[in-house]
């Protein structure tokens, strides 16, 4: 074994110099109980900075729209291009976050896309397309998509049930649009509402106990 003449101690491993005082170490190298694991510079900080600066740019872009005149009179189709680019950017950032839970991702996506569409419609002069078409279609299809995905991926019930429930509840919103007469065409909202009600009944009948178990766990005080 190597040893350090200054510390008068034995040194395990193949240190050429004492790890404590850097004095050259004579003697035969031995096995170290610790393997030499190469340095590994984490990119986590860079990723975090990129994430937060992206979010800042995206939020800034959405806020900047309010400074421009509403309707098509101001910057015309450029606004839609701008909104399209930052929406795309936002979705890419969300995808890059790589949340493992598909149901949770779906809820986030439905909320984000729904809110952006409504805002977009509002900015371009409120033609009602967001509430009549975009939101009900996104909500309805996401419920169907989720039903299929959790089956295909065999996601554990406890993993997705709360978020699936939330997606279904979001799907009930278009019924409200119908009641308050906010829509120009009632069909998408009616279909979405029907899907949600059926899904909700099924959830209650087949998975009621699971939902209560998961909620009790997640809301435990």
């Amino acid at each position: 074994m190597k040893h350090c003449t200054q510390c008068t101690a034995q040194i395990e491993g193949d240190w050429q110099h004492c790890p404590l005082c850097e004095t050259p170490t004579p003697g035969e190298p031995s096995h170290s109980p610790f393997p030499a694991i190469p340095l590994n510079y984490s990119r986590r900080r860079v990723v975090r900075i990129l994430f937060f600066s992206s979010i800042a740019v995206i939020l800034g872009s959405f806020a900047a729209q309010l400074l421009l005149e509403r309707g098509s009179a101001s910057i015309g189709s450029l606004r839609s291009v701008w909104l399209g680019v930052i929406t795309m950017w936002l979705l890419v950032v969300m995808a890059a976050r790589n949340q493992r839970n598909i149901a949770k991702n779906t809820v986030t996506l439905v909320l984000l896309v729904g809110l952006i569409c409504v805002y977009w419609d509002y900015l371009t002069g409120w033609h009602g397309w967001a509430l009549s078409y975009a939101v009900p279609i996104v909500c309805g299809t996401s419920i169907l998509a989720l039903l299929i995905t959790v089956r295909v991926l065999r996601t554990e019930v406890g993993e997705h049930i709360v978020y699936s429930g939330l997606t279904v509840l979001l799907g009930l919103a278009p019924i409200g649009f119908l009641v308050f007469g906010w829509v120009t065409t009632p069909i998408p909202s009616a279909i979405c509402g029907a899907i949600s009600i059926i899904a909700l009944v099924m959830l209650q009948v087949f998975r009621g106990a699971d939902v209560r178990h998961e909620l009790a766990k997640r809301l435990d005080l």
């Binding site: 510390c7 101690a9 040194i11 395990e12 240190w15 404590l20 610790f34 030499a36």
Partner: peptide
């Protein structure tokens, strides 16, 4: 740790030291 070791060895305790490598210089030596 150096001080700790030297205080013990100066009192006749046999100490053996095993350390992890953490700096570029230590890896270069390796």
């Amino acid at each position: 740790i150096r001080e700790f070791v030297r205080m013990l060895t100066s009192q006749g305790v046999d100490v053996s030291v095993a350390a992890t490598r953490v700096t570029e210089a230590e890896f270069a030596e390796d």
